[in-house]
Design a binder for these strands. Structure first.
Lengths: 149, 149
DNA sequence: CTTTTTAGTTAAGTGGGCTTAACTTTATAC
DNA sequence: GTATAAAGTTAAGCCCACTTAACTAAAAAG
């Protein structure tokens, strides 16, 4: 690990700002849609994973299965996601975002992408390609990290 | 804006993963400390800004002044922050993190920094310097963006 | 085939965040 | 100097997330 301090410091600084903005952004967006933050988080989780069961949500957010079931039920009733029976295990449910849910997440993401587009205008084309390359490196590293688990 | 698509796509991919991890991380950390997410957010906001008043919190999180006052009161009673009178405007209060609050935030940040350190082990020294440079570019761009407001 | 474990639901009750409304105190406007 | 606006606080009440407990139904274990 050569020069870990500068790397870490820079990454930290970036993280601080970036996370601050993201969380505030999602919070406001959730409020504007009438959904609570936990509900929105479930939709995001589902967007990320594609599909999951009640117990997955329970684990991810560290809440009881009962709480997960109740939250999901509201989202199902509001038509944001579908809850189907798992053919392989008839006790389990398979949750998937339906169109309304997908569009909601897309809209939320777009709002925050706007900030990134603004960011893009503040840097030159040359810098932009450097940043792109760097982020690709990071994305690849993340994949490696996730695979190992 | 030359090649905006690749840049945007990469930034988006990074953002997705990164935000997901950060939010889950903070959520779990908040729970482990016994604080709620709104309370934790106030501490983070204060860590970020250094100092602010009740009305600032009210605006930032889009809640009523009453709600902000109540949340702050709990944090004051739990000794996470200090609420002093503003000498320039005796109606207003000046909120600052005290030692306990600072250490809490530091601890929370460190936990997520551990992930970044893991990330650092997945990339070569050469890549690391590229990434560092790129993130510095982004940080500078963010500063420019914030100044303009 | 019986027992136990696992996935999920339902119900009752708790706690916390949030709101509105009424109020105090200080600053600003005219 | 009086009126109005602004910063916070307090209280009452609502809603929602969350928990525990009791339950159903299906899978796994023995």
């Amino acid at each position: 690990m050569t020069k870990p301090t500068q790397f870490t410091q820079t990454l930290r600084a970036w993280m601080d700002v970036f996370m601050h903005r993201s969380m505030r952004g999602w919070g406001h967006f959730a409020k504007s849609t009438g959904l609570s933050m936990p509900q929105m988080s479930i939709l995001m989780q589902l967007h990320h994973k594609g599909t999951c069961g009640i117990s997955d949500i329970s684990e991810r957010f560290d809440i009881s299965a009962a709480a997960a079931s109740q939250l999901v039920d509201k989202l199902v009733q509001a038509d944001y996601l579908a809850r189907a029976e798992d053919p392989n295990d008839r006790r389990a449910k398979i949750l998937t975002l339906n169109i309304k849910g997908q569009e909601l997440i897309k809209r939320g993401a777009e709002e925050r992408h706007r900030w990134m587009d603004e960011l893009a205008t503040k840097i030159t084309a040359e810098e932009r390609s450097k940043v792109t390359e760097a982020l690709e490196i990071l994305n690849r590293a993340v994949l490696q990290l996730e695979e190992k688990k």
